[in-house]
């Protein structure tokens, strides 16, 4: 995968903690202090109960491969075929990502495979949370 031309995120005030987290090697989620709902993507209130009492915490990083496609057409910054995946974190939320460290084939990408994060530094501001198969 060539990484240079991907459209990189531009953090906003509400998402800054997430992107600071990936730079520090953490996937930072939010939890509602009132109803305990854990949610993603970031926002300064709970989408379950509308409470503004929410806290940021570091997820364990443990995840499973929830679903994906193997894209066979070229896209900026990518050489096909490559998997566009959604992973489910141990804490519940799901996020889109890419799976690295294994062939981009259906055989190498069984659903529910255990995954761990691979933090890919793109530049001084942005580190993307990619995932790779968990060892053992």
């Amino acid at each position: 995968m060539s990484e240079s031309k991907r459209p990189l995120p531009q953090p906003t005030p509400e998402t800054k903690h997430f992107w600071e987290g990936t730079k520090a090697g953490e996937i930072r989620l939010q939890r509602c202090d009132d109803c305990a709902n854990v949610y993603f993507p970031p926002r300064p209130f709970c989408p379950g109960c509308a409470s503004r009492n929410v806290s940021v915490f570091a997820a364990s990083g443990k995840a499973r491969l929830f679903s994906y496609v193997i894209h066979h057409r070229p896209a900026p910054g990518f050489t096909p075929p490559y998997a566009i995946a959604v992973v489910e974190l141990e804490e519940g939320p799901r996020l889109m990502t890419n799976i690295v460290g294994c062939p981009q084939t259906p055989e190498a990408l069984p659903l529910d495979m255990a995954l761990v994060p691979h933090f890919e530094k793109m530049n001084d501001d942005i580190t993307l949370p990619l995932f790779q198969p968990a060892k053992g």
């Binding site: 991907r6 992107w19 496609v69 894209h71 057409r73 889109m96 990502t97």
Partner: peptide
């Protein structure tokens, strides 16, 4: 733009299809 576009999504064929597996 922050949480999907960085991962190589490129038009509906690369996104709408993701839940199917």
């Amino acid at each position: 733009g922050q949480f999907e576009m960085p991962y190589g999504v490129y038009g509906p064929p690369s996104m709408f299809t993701v839940p199917v597996l």
